[in-house]
Amino acid sequence: MATARAKAGDAPHPSAPIAAKLRMRYAKRGRARFSSHRDVARTMEWTLRRAGVPVALSQGFSPHPKLSWLGAAPTGAASEAEYLEIGVTEELDPAVVAREVDAALPDGLAVVEVVRAGPGAIADRIDASRWVIDTPGVPDERLRPAIETFLAATEVTVERLTKNGPRPLDVRSAVAELGLTLTRTDEPEDADREDRARAATCGRLMTVVRHTTPAARPDDVCSALRAVAGLEFPEPVRATRWAQGRLDERGELVDPLAADRAAPTA
């Protein structure tokens, strides 16, 4: 009988402890928007290893990298503002980590910024998202009256399918801001005439949504417009999260990494 064998729970070769925490803002663009949160998480773990970032591992027989994820954009939605916290075993230059990880990511995923974590939890600095939603087949003129009806309502409830079955969701109370936005930055320059004609029929919404439970997603905002104003969306909408942060009293989103940038370096 072997008695000196390791038992479940005590790892025979513990990895080094966390020396620093890094916070990463990354983007999910183009075709990568079809990835789910699990897809992105797996991809990021492998990418960090490819890039040689010394991520700390949990103890035990099945070590996992010390990564903390903040609420991820849903499958099908793009984002310029996703956040991740990484425990590393060495002090590293955040700018070098940003560069090396960005180079190792597959197309469609990109590092926007990496900072060294200051005091406080990043989760406490995020309570809302700003989304831009393209609505192919529904031009701005048709969106405008629907938005007005929606904003005038005190409650707009849609049904959301959750793990525990359908649940009612009051989208109106979650929406802090909803309007049209005129910025069109992603129109293909070499699009042929037909594409341009299609773009002319494509409206663009901007909305700031508070993080409720369950979270109101861009799709829910569109469902709410359908519910309140009978607006039909003939094609799937394309949503992009432009920012996350804390909604201040002026209705602006405060950059969640601002406090880390301002923190004195250790």
Binding site: L48, R49, A51, G52, V55, A56, P63, P65, T89, E100
Partner: peptide, 9 residues
């Protein structure tokens, strides 16, 4: 470390 890859960067 947690990574089998040595990145000179």
């Amino acid at each position: 470390t947690s990574t089998p890859v040595r990145n000179p960067a």
